[in-house]
Design a protein around this nucleic acid. Structure first.
Lengths: 155, 155
DNA sequence: CTCGCTGCAAAATGTTTGCACATTC
DNA sequence: GAATGTGCAAACATTTTGCAGCGAG
């Protein structure tokens, strides 16, 4: 089933690149194909290891940059954590987080509706769940008005 | 209000340390006090900068190790992302994540109840929300049986 | 007095940047 | 042919480890 869809995905990929004025290079295509096949949540390093079996000369930087580029144009997503340094939270009570994509600030959210969300039985059967949290992402009021969609940093 | 509670928190802190057979050193106490005051989600670096104003000789490692120790005994929490390398996700559809604290594998969860969770109006007013996700944490079936609560790694 | 904790230094890991050459459009 | 993408190498940032001496219990 994955195989069948690949062609469509590849077409969509090429089109998206063209729309964003990105060149469709063999490296990019291969990386995208590998992402399709992996269906996991690999790090740049993980993707690199796989791509290397087909493009032995590819550099890690190309893989890493390509992934960041893909994320920038919305072709793929970056998993929560976003590669930031580890951060700590004194608040052990049940609460939730809003993460600003621009200034990277995390705001605690307290919300009964979120707290009350139940973990379905089938998930509980597959995993030992010790923590449940709703994570929202977007832009805080400081950042929301000025900017729209890019990934530039700010200390 | 934070001020008043500090004493209690400090007592609880000392007791927790004793229970876990950790020594109550000035450094640890200071770091804990700073966490109480910060009420944010600082990185080790961020905590270090503040502690240094009072303990100019403290080393970054002590701060970092202390924070990790605190997290290990459940005194504080590590925010989603956990300091892992950045990871990517091809799946742009609405889905949710389970993160295994042991093997660090992320599993996609598809769950209607989670999808349907509405973001309350007051949150929408404060933030521009572009993404919503439920993140569960715990141990997957491979890791759940062998281990219970520590933080040791496994490649 | 003992063992855990701290500070220092170095290593390991992960990420970013600059530049010359190759390649897509 | 112009401009973007790639590979390489070095810089940078973050996290981890080993060890000698210090200090809490």
């Amino acid at each position: 089933m994955q195989q069948r869809a690949s062609t469509d995905h590849l077409k969509a990929f090429a089109e998206k690149c063209r729309r964003k004025k990105l060149r469709v290079t063999p490296q990019r295509t291969e990386i995208f194909k590998i992402l399709l096949k992996l269906q996991t949540h690999p790090s740049a390093e993980g993707v690199y290891r796989v791509v290397k079996t087909r493009f032995p000369n590819i550099s890690f930087d190309t893989v890493n940059r390509t992934l960041l580029t893909f994320a920038e144009i919305g072709l793929i997503d970056v998993v929560e954590g976003y590669g930031d340094p580890r951060r700590f939270d004194l608040n052990l009570e049940h609460h939730h987080h809003f993460y600003c994509m621009n200034c990277r600030k995390i705001t605690d959210l307290f919300c009964e509706a979120f707290d009350q969300l139940a973990v379905p039985k089938d998930i509980k059967e597959r995993f030992t769940v010790t923590n449940k949290r709703v994570v929202l992402r977007g832009f805080c009021d400081n950042c929301g008005s000025n900017r729209v969609g890019d990934n530039s940093k700010q200390s």
